[in-house]
Amino acid sequence: MTKDLEHQFVTELEKNQNIVHKVCTLYTNDRDSHKDLFQEITIQLWKAYPKFRGDSKFSTWMYRVALNTAITLYRKSKKNIRTQDYESVIFKISADEYDPTEEQQLKLMYNAVKQLGDIDKALVFLYLEEKNYTEIADTLGITEVNARVKMNRIKNKLRTILNP
């Protein structure tokens, strides 16, 4: 029975691991921290798994636990020095779509998003994942109106970071 549960969980997570990786990319700055956070999220997901009843999609449930772990439970290890090596992986643009202005703009955008606070990042993340405002509000525990207002503020904030 437990073996079944383990297998089921690991298979599901393996299939949906992109969600966790993306959260880690936003909330950490180097490979070690990325791995660290990925592990902590995995542990939290596994701990909560028995309570997951399938009334929502596995991936929906994952967003919540993963973001909660990043915003609340995760303690940054001291060694979070930004490494050049890692940056180049995130901001790699493949040759066929190379467009210097667009690449430059994207790089600036990613850097700007990285500078946001934990909560703002969560909003941007859910927005980028094309969640609607009801879901964003529900995940963070705020009202839909406030989620919209906050998102607009973040857009302004990003604009100021980009054009100081």
Partner: peptide, 13 residues
């Protein structure tokens, strides 16, 4: 991933 679920949590809680 399987190995990770048996690791110890280091969460704030």
């Amino acid at each position: 991933i399987y190995k990770m679920i048996w690791k110890k949590s280091s969460s704030i809680v």
